[in-house]
Structures are given as structure tokens and as C-alpha cells.
């Protein structure tokens, strides 16, 4: 299965929505609405995904093997039968790291050239 997965770099750059979803799933598995809330909270409400964008991205990321759908709720106490939960795969984690490295490198370049100050 692993042999079929493409190199993380080949999936870059990720769309902003995809990267936000990966980040939201980095610390724990979540259902859709929870992902939306997490993204909004982390960005101070500057990025708010729509349900359509979220599930279209999830459909694609499931196919790419970046996320996986969980059979059971990560929180047995708060299990809603109807909800579908998603978690990050190892491959997804590698891709998210690769994207983070790419963004960091870009930021460094912008600092090098003095386009932005060394410390924002």
C-alpha cells in the first residue's frame, strides 16, 4: 500500500484549505464541523471554510491517502453515531511537514531579500 503512495513533494503545493485541514487533524481526530471550528479558531476567524469546500477537500485527501475515515469516535464518551470522524495518516503527516518546510523556505527567502523584516 505504501509503495503506491506518491512522494510527498509531488503533491505540493497544497491548497490552503487542504493545509488547514491537515493542521486541524494534527493533534487529534475530528469530525467535519470540528475541523471548521478549529481552523476558524486558529486563524482568529480569518479563514472560515464552507461545508462544500471542506468535504470536497476531504474527498480528494481521502483519495490521496492524506486522511482516513475512522470507524469509531476518538472520544467514546461523546460518540455521535451519525458523525463521521477523520484522522491524519502517516503519509498525510509527511505531506503536511513537507508543505510546512516549503512555506518556511519561502518565508526565509523573503526575509533574505529584505522584502519582509527579519522579525514580523
Amino acid at each position: 500500500m505504501m509503495a503506491d503512495l506518491p512522494e510527498p513533494e509531488s503533491l505540493l503545493p497544497l491548497s490552503p484549505a487542504a493545509f488547514h485541514i491537515l493542521v486541524a487533524l494534527a493533534d487529534r481526530d475530528r469530525h467535519g464541523y470540528s475541523i471548521l471550528q478549529d481552523v476558524a479558531a486558529r486563524t482568529d476567524g480569518k479563514v472560515v471554510l464552507s461545508a462544500a469546500t471542506l468535504y470536497s477537500s476531504i474527498r480528494r485527501m481521502l483519495e490521496q491517502g492524506l486522511v482516513t475515515e475512522l470507524r469509531e469516535s476518538p472520544d467514546p464518551g461523546n460518540h455521535d453515531e451519525r458523525r463521521r470522524y477523520y484522522g491524519l495518516t502517516d503519509h498525510g503527516r509527511r505531506v503536511a511537514m513537507a508543505e510546512a518546510r516549503r512555506l518556511t523556505a519561502m518565508l526565509a527567502q523573503a526575509r533574505e531579500t529584505g522584502l519582509i523584516p527579519k522579525k514580523l
Binding site: Y33, L36, A51, A52, L54, Y55, S56, R83
Partner: peptide
């Protein structure tokens, strides 16, 4: 196919929002 797969989830997410 997309609607069948994710329609309910999207409605649920939207209604919560």
C-alpha cells in the same frame, strides 16, 4: 455519488453553523 457520500454530513455541518 458525491451527494450520497457527503450530503448528510454537509447538511449537519451547515445546520450546526
Amino acid at each position: 455519488p458525491f451527494r450520497r457520500e457527503y450530503g448528510d454530513e454537509m447538511v449537519r455541518t451547515f445546520s450546526q453553523e
